[in-house]
Write a protein that binds this DNA or RNA. Structure first.
Lengths: 110, 110
DNA sequence: GATTAATATCGTAATATTGCGATATAAAAA
DNA sequence: TTTTTATATCGCAATATTACGATATTAATC
């Protein structure tokens, strides 16, 4: 159906899946890297950095923003985007927790 | 087009995006959690654990396997799945690196 | 107020994902 | 060797994603 049965999973599982989904595209990873690379987060020129048309990048930015990975505020003529580092850190930590939580008394067989 | 222009991005960006994509679904997160929860990695009964039909779970397992997040070997009648913890750890580390790499002399404006 | 520049939205085409019933396969058990 | 059990694959329908041209919006600049 292309629609995931999110209601059957926990809030945490859905939340983490959604954040990872926002990051799960090379263009969006490149965008996050580019924004972080700028010392200040004045982030015009993303369009010139990537081999994608302006509407496509705008769409990727929207996805990153709506998932909370980045935030943007109006800055004169353009928009200033920053990575929400706290949010991204938390996502990474959540993923790491899954791995850590279960690591005790493992008996590898594969 | 629904097809990402992967050839324009770096190997690292494509690789990370692909791993994150494999994890970016609540059912697949639940599967990884369930496999890790078992002390031994004898992993039948996944079908009974999740509210999804057997072919659907088989498909999710295939995706996790082909991206290297889990590995499976034949174990009698069934199949024994394990999380490839090294691989998963590396994915998390790669994501963390992106965040760390750029953290020096930041000037937050958002 | 018209122009320019930066970004967003709309509409649409191509492709991918999700889910499952039906069916196939493969190994153990009877 | 038939049956049972566990898992995979096929085929399909519904929906989502990716990409972009055309166009709209918004704010600075002239």
């Amino acid at each position: 159906m292309g629609v995931s049965k999110s209601s059957f999973f926990t809030e945490e599982q859905n939340e983490l899946a959604s954040k990872l989904k926002a990051l799960a595209h090379p263009a969006r990873i490149a965008i996050v890297q580019y924004i972080l690379k700028q010392k200040k987060c004045i982030c015009t020129n993303i369009v010139e950095e990537l081999p994608l048309a302006q509407p496509t990048i705008s769409q990727h930015l929207k996805e990153l923003k709506s998932s909370g990975i980045i935030k943007g505020s109006i800055e004169g003529k353009g928009i200033c985007y920053c990575v929400d580092e706290e949010n991204l850190s938390k996502t990474i930590a959540n993923l790491q927790e899954i791995l850590n939580e279960m690591k005790l008394e493992k008996d590898d067989c594969c």
